[in-house]
Computed example of a mutant assay.
Amino acid sequence: MLTATVARKALLAALTLCCALTASADDTRYSAYHDYRVVTVAEGLIRPWSMAFLPDGEMLVTEQPGRLRVIRNGELLEDPVEGVPEVFYRGQGGLLDVVPHPAFALNRLLYLSYSKPLANDESTTAVIRGRYEQGQLRNIEEIFEAKTRGRGHYGSRIAFDDNGHVFITVGDRQVPPSGDLEDHPAQSLADHHGVVVRLREDGSVPADNPFVDRENALPEIWSYGHRSPQGMVFDSSTGNLWITEHGPQGGDELNLIEPGGNYGWPVIGYGVNYGSGKAIHEATHREGMIQPRKIWVPSIATSGLALYEANAFHNWRRHLLAGGLAGQQIALLELEDQSVIREETLVKGLGRVRDVRVGPDGFIYIALDDRRADPSAIVRLEPVAREEIR
């Protein structure tokens, strides 16, 4: 049986080999507390959406068209993983998040989210799990299918807590706000538009979910009133669940998720209608609706979210790393008492940041989704000592 310590040592060694690259690929940048180098990990990817690290040193990357790719010993393998379900690849749809089970070294379970094709050219957010063995995904089970209809905003981020639960984000599916804003499906508990879902690892509903006993409410809903949550991370040290979500034109949000909480979309918010700049919301505040911990105006088009708890960048410990697509950046957020007290911009202009993860080596890995410049790449940030720069 592979112990966690042995698995971690093997992974660290493999990542060191996997991602050792030529100096010509380096790009040194500067920040307040750490200088860092941008190093290319893998090229030749088509619309990478998410990354995951495995105990044997492999790195998995989802490609939105529907492929799960493997980086092994520094090479992007030509053949994708077999057994991935058919995806609805159109617009924002496709193969999206990939997250190993916390006990992956023992059970080999991978969780994948994707836009699932339905009848009549419709689609919805779904999550499956399966055993990953020898380049194949086997014994696949669907643990969640969202009750939604729409064009985009699938959400699709997956995160585990430390108590056997899995959280899944679902967007509002781009249902336009109109008329009475409280009639928008993101304000309803009868469907999955604009929600965070909490399930057991096998897809069953925990008995202590906030809406289990409420009539006409879906019992798996953990929070609602979200627009397009595309970043999520669970903080094991505090039990906090953080998400980032797209506002419309302006008004991206960082939210601390409370069970049963209503986050207000589209009744309250800080953005405006695309193009026209006309107001969408009734106000920015309302009693009973939860305020974001941070907003971005103008929007950075938030994407992946990670919590830095490693040692390679020791002055960034306990900081959040929020990716930005339109902003082409990572927002480094310093936290104090569940509030953001400082923000610094990293890797400005590097490309559309689709995902950000912290590797077992403590380096920061970034998936770049440059749709107009495919193929895209995975890069990583490595610390650079200031005397090395001189």
Rank of each mutant, 00 (worst) to 15 (best):
M1H: 05
A4E: 15
A4K: 15
R8P: 12
R8F: 06
R8Y: 03
A10I: 13
A14V: 08
S24Q: 14
A25W: 14
D27N: 15
R29C: 05
Y30D: 05
S31W: 08
V38W: 12
T40W: 13
V41R: 04
G44M: 07
L45E: 08
I46Q: 03
R47E: 14
W49R: 15
A52L: 00
F53P: 14
L54V: 00
G66W: 12
G66A: 09
G66P: 14
G66R: 12
L68T: 09
V70Q: 07
I71D: 03
N73R: 15
G74F: 14
L76H: 15
L77Y: 13
D79V: 04
F88Q: 06
Y89N: 07
R90L: 05
G91M: 04
G91N: 08
Q92K: 03
G93L: 06
P102I: 10
F104C: 11
A105K: 10
R108M: 06
Y111R: 09
S113Y: 04
Y114R: 07
K116P: 07
P117A: 13
A119V: 10
A119E: 02
E122Q: 07
T124Y: 14
T125P: 04
A126V: 07
Q136T: 12
N139H: 09
I140K: 13
I140S: 02
E145T: 15
A146I: 06
T148A: 02
G150H: 11
R151T: 10
R151W: 05
I158D: 11
A159G: 04
F160H: 07
D162L: 03
N163Q: 07
V170A: 01
Q174G: 06
P176I: 00
P176W: 08
S178L: 02
D180I: 00
P185V: 04
S188G: 12
L189I: 00
L189M: 11
G203N: 08
V205E: 00
V205F: 07
P206M: 00
P206W: 03
P210G: 04
E215H: 14
E215K: 15
N216L: 11
E220C: 08
I221T: 04
W222M: 02
Y224K: 03
R227T: 01
R227I: 06
Q230M: 12
V233I: 02
F234A: 07
L241I: 00
I243Q: 12
E253L: 04
L256Y: 05
P259Y: 01
W265M: 00
G269A: 13
Y270T: 03
Y274I: 09
G275D: 13
H285G: 10
G288N: 05
M289N: 12
I290H: 06
Q291M: 00
K294S: 04
A301N: 02
S303G: 05
L305Y: 02
W316M: 07
R318S: 10
H319E: 10
L325S: 00
Q328C: 08
A331T: 12
A331R: 01
L333E: 11
E334K: 09
E343T: 08
E344R: 15
E344N: 12
L350D: 01
G351V: 10
R352T: 10
D355L: 04
V358F: 01
D361Q: 05
F363K: 08
R372L: 15
D374W: 15
D374Y: 13
S376Q: 05
A377S: 12
A377C: 06
I378R: 14
E387W: 15
